[in-house]
Design a protein around this nucleic acid. Structure first.
Length: 362
DNA sequence: TACGCGTGGTG
DNA sequence: TCACCAAGCGT
């Protein structure tokens, strides 16, 4: 792909002006657009990774209320941060964000770096987020290539590279470096993303409303529905689980914390075991798991329901039981918590749903 | 490079 | 109903 020939007949300055004028006029009123505080831009960009604007808005408002600046987030308990993230998904974003904010607090005296080298070295800040923060908060003309930008530019410039391939992003970064507005890189980058979000959508783009359609080669060729080229990924696998909601005499409930790494890291859940032994009933397997893995003698009582939870890459099918635990126990990763304490712990949505069903049953 | 990592909305 | 999507990053 030759950059010069690609841009030979492209009116870069006219395109910049049309895009920036449209964004100035039509941009949505969003809470992270009230100012250019680098911290708030940063938080919003992390939350927006793979997540819709409408989903992020309430989380952003609540998060900024609880952690209004670098210092407050740096000093917060990790569990409070995860609780603020509860339900938003991709929880490593929250832990990486706090780790990075602590580094900014300690190493950079609380000032978010304004250069590529330092900011891209922070945990959770990749090529896209680097460009987004530098352009939006600091007005530095760096590319911020996300899925929107690749879709919009693949149509405008008729680029047929597969946007599912990691190396394709580099092609778009090269293109952006050539055509980005040096005067207003913030509105240029945001304009491309906003256009992708509300006009140049994945299916049935609104070309007749598009402010840059006269620059769009796909529109001229009638190919807007064929682009971008994006190969599919393969399907999800099924995992069968058994979960128990166990109460002690005081009404406390047993919970366990998930491992530090991997799926739903460090979130809390009701004791759960993968169902692999088909010779045993789910009830028997749960009983044995509690005794042999945790040294806790429980009485599994009633079956409550099945909960299915669909992730991006796998499906959980959970058999849910309630039961009792007698006396005390020790030397275990599992602990009994009061209702008040339970409400402070971050739970994945699947186990929030388990709790709801148990409440219905009681 | 390919895959693991969440969730809620949509046609 | 279900495959696919939405402002990616780490390994």
């Amino acid at each position: 792909m030759n950059l010069n020939s690609l841009l030979q007949t492209f009116s870069t300055v006219d395109f910049q002006n049309d895009l920036i004028e449209w964004f100035s006029k039509e941009q949505r009123d969003l809470p992270w657009r009230k100012d250019q505080d680098p911290y708030k831009v940063w938080v919003s960009e992390i939350m927006l990774q793979q997540t819709k604007v409408d989903t992020v808005i309430p989380y952003f408002n609540s998060f900024i209320e609880q952690f209004p600046n670098i210092e407050s987030l740096a000093n917060a308990e990790e569990e409070r941060v995860l609780k603020a993230w509860e339900g938003l998904g991709y929880y490593s974003r929250a832990r990486n964000l706090q780790a990075a904010v602590r580094e900014v607090h300690e190493v950079y005296r609380g000032v978010v770096p304004n250069n590529v080298k330092d900011i891209s070295s922070l945990k959770g800040v990749g090529p896209y987020t680097t460009g987004a923060i530098l352009s939006i908060a600091y007005g530095i003309p760096e590319p911020a290539v996300d899925g929107n930008v690749m879709r919009v530019l693949s149509r405008i410039l008729l680029i047929r590279e597969d946007i599912a391939k990691p190396k394709t992003r580099k092609i778009f970064e090269e293109v952006i470096r050539e055509i980005i507005s040096k005067e207003n890189p913030s509105f240029f980058n945001q304009g491309l993303m906003e256009l992708g979000a509300i006009v140049c959508t994945p299916t049935s783009p609104s070309c007749l409303l598009c402010p840059v359609r006269e620059h769009c080669r796909a529109f001229h060729e009638g190919e807007q529905n064929e682009l971008p080229v994006k190969t599919k990924k393969k399907s999800t696998k099924q995992v069968n689980l058994v979960a128990g909601v166990f109460f002690d005499e005081k009404g406390n409930v047993l919970v366990q914390q998930r491992p530090e790494n991997g799926l739903l890291a460090k979130l809390w859940e009701f004791p759960t075991v993968e169902r692999v032994v088909e010779l045993e009933t789910p009830k028997q397997q749960l009983q044995r798991f509690m005794l042999e893995e945790n040294g806790i003698n429980v009485e599994v009582e009633d079956y409550i329901c099945d909960i299915q939870h669909v992730f991006s890459h796998l499906v959980w099918n959970i058999n849910v039981y309630v039961g009792k635990v007698n006396g005390t126990f020790e030397n275990s990763t599992i602990k009994a918590v009061s209702r008040e304490k339970q409400e402070l712990l971050p739970f994945p949505v699947s186990h929030q749903n388990i709790w709801k069903e148990v409440q219905k049953y009681k």
